[in-house]
Nucleic acid binder design. Structure first.
Lengths: 153, 153
DNA sequence: ACTGCCGAGTTGACGTGTCACCTCAAGGTG
DNA sequence: CACCTTGAGGTGACACGTCAACTCGGCAGT
């Protein structure tokens, strides 16, 4: 008897939201890629590292901050190290520090304005300030649920 | 002097929204993958095809409906055809129809309940009905902007 | 000391998405 | 007619994300 589980209203809400986020992410990434040669993932890592004291973090913390699986993070860092955007430095016995390089800082600084402008153009300026707060508030609620739900949380 | 272009409030709104959608998508996909062996992309294609008259569409229409690049769609369909979920049928001179197979219909029917339940659990039931409508409404506004902005739109 | 588990970090294989480029029919315009 | 453009469809190379499995130090419990 396969009940859908979602009402028509809920299904449409989900589809619209899903489609919007898919498309938005793709656009943001395209701009970033075209203008700075960075992916969204690159940008996230660079931004997080640049905000950390001394521009360095343990991979574990970085993974927590970005909500990434360790494996994804590792591959990402390997690619970024190969491109000279980040570096790895051994610190303890089995500890590694990820550091942002000068080149990484430069790439980030280069990317920030265009990225911010695109986020504004496609997202922030599309809605009223009240709507933006509302949207972010609801997103935060959902995000909170996602975090407290997972096995590793 | 690199003005950020975004206020702190805007930046946090964007980050929260972005992170939420990333995580939500990953979770939804995990459930789908684990319980039905389908990716989000598989599910989208099957759902769209199952809703089309006769379960068939032109690749072009499918691409429009899902907002996908033709290349992505083509690769996706190739993989799905290989797995027997969909088929390709020549119709005009240079025309192709994508059709959903019995196996595809069965896979979709099998996946729907669990998927709906997960969407409800992680998304719909996390917020009030009013918030859901609000969220979807704002998403629709942004989606609209994205659609009327693109080169191919 | 031996055993076993845990968790950070790593690896390879594989499915997925994007880019640049190609094919080929249809429809102009000289 | 030759020539060019447009658009649907297709292809390969490469970057990305996930999964399962592995290494290896630390830290129990016996």
């Amino acid at each position: 008897m396969e009940q859908q589980g979602l009402t028509e209203r809920e299904r449409r809400a989900w589809r619209t939201s899903f489609e919007m986020t898919e498309l938005l992410r793709a656009r943001i990434e395209q701009q970033l890629q075209a203008d700075s040669g960075l992916s969204n993932a690159d940008y996230t890592v660079l931004a997080l590292l640049s905000e950390a004291p001394d521009g360095r973090m343990r991979p574990y913390e970085l993974g927590q901050a970005a909500n990434w699986e360790k494996s994804r993070l590792h591959h990402q860092l390997t690619r970024m190290c190969r491109r000279g955007l980040t570096g790895r430095e051994r610190c303890g016995n089995r500890g590694v520090d990820v550091v942002i390089t000068q080149k990484g800082l430069a790439a980030l600084a280069d990317a920030v304005p265009g990225h911010a402008q695109e986020v504004r153009r496609l997202f922030v300026d599309r809605v009223t300030p009240e709507e933006l707060d509302l949207f972010a508030g609801i997103a935060a609620k959902i995000l909170d649920g996602l975090r407290t739900d997972q096995p590793s949380g």
